[in-house]
Design a protein around this nucleic acid. Sequence first.
DNA 1: AATGACCTCAACCGCCGCAAG
DNA 2: GCTTGCGGCGGTTGAGGTCAT
Length: 336
Amino acid sequence: MGRTPCCEKNGGLRKGPWTTEEDQKLIDYIHKNGYGNWRTLPKNAGLQRCGKSCRLRWTNYLKPDIKRGKFSTEEEETIIQLHSVLGNKWSTIAARLPGRTDNEIKNYWNTHIRKRLLRMGIDPITHNTRLDILALSSIMINSPDLYNSTMVNPELLRLMASISSQGNQNPYFIHQNPQKHILENTLQAQENHYLLQDQTLIQEISNCASLSTPTFVVPSSSETSKLMQPNVNQFPSSVSEFKPQTCHYIDVLTSNNLENFVTLNDNCNYHINPQSSVTSTFLNSSIASSSSTIMNSVSNLTYIDGSTGEEDREIRYCSNLFKSEFQEQLNANIFM
DNA sequence: AATGACCTCAACCGCCGCAAG
DNA sequence: GCTTGCGGCGGTTGAGGTCAT
């Protein structure tokens, strides 16, 4: 049997922007009768609207305690911090920002914060430094012909110039929340293609005759341990998500980086991040194919294998694989 | 001043979990 | 126990505004 239908399905209902008359009718009705049954409300209030439309209009715009206007710096920082833990849980984020609606926060994120983070070289999904851009920056700065090439995406050049001028002090890439990172990367693989989708640029990098030493280094184990500590005071509800001593993820970009990487010697599991578009592109490029250093290093890697699921796959990418098998895995699983 | 590109955000769409019937 | 609607949520759209040329 079930319930009676939500609203008249046979048309006659208005859609689109609300008029001031409609707003007033809705406000007057709710002030007089309160809200609760959105199905019957439109009819009782004399509105030619669906109940759902009325609810949305009230909760997102007409409710008296809604704070309108520009977001403050404090509000913006709160949103960023909460998003780094909660992801796109807009209603949960809104619950911690009095007077702001989930819709408003969502819009503000998509139109302002997300772009700002990207300009700063921060991945708006993982909230980590985008090492792919940092590494590309170092490659291009040391390759004037490439840097000045009109074939390269001008937006990418601007981005790199911006990052370089900021003197980014976080030259390595450690995921604070590996589980969350993997999930997000899996679900939103499109986001991780970044600007390397630009086939022209990929070709330019592949054609680059020699690679200079990258400007970043792999941190010592004591440094990574510090970095991996969750901010317990700030996000008490998310502590269970962090497993600081379980594993570390590092983007692998060049032979130099990889060599540093394999000399690390401590009790942590270090995983090369196969989701990085730069890692996969670089390893799959002609530069990587012709570099015995990279492939030898890869085949000599050993890991403490105590992980499951996605992490197993990552370990297999990086340990004890012959060149051909490694290449095959990359082709089959990363470029799909 | 005209025009096209880009941006913003209110509103809609479709899905999901829960609970009424 | 099953069906179906409600309320809530996150993703997407598109009209109107703004900016650049």
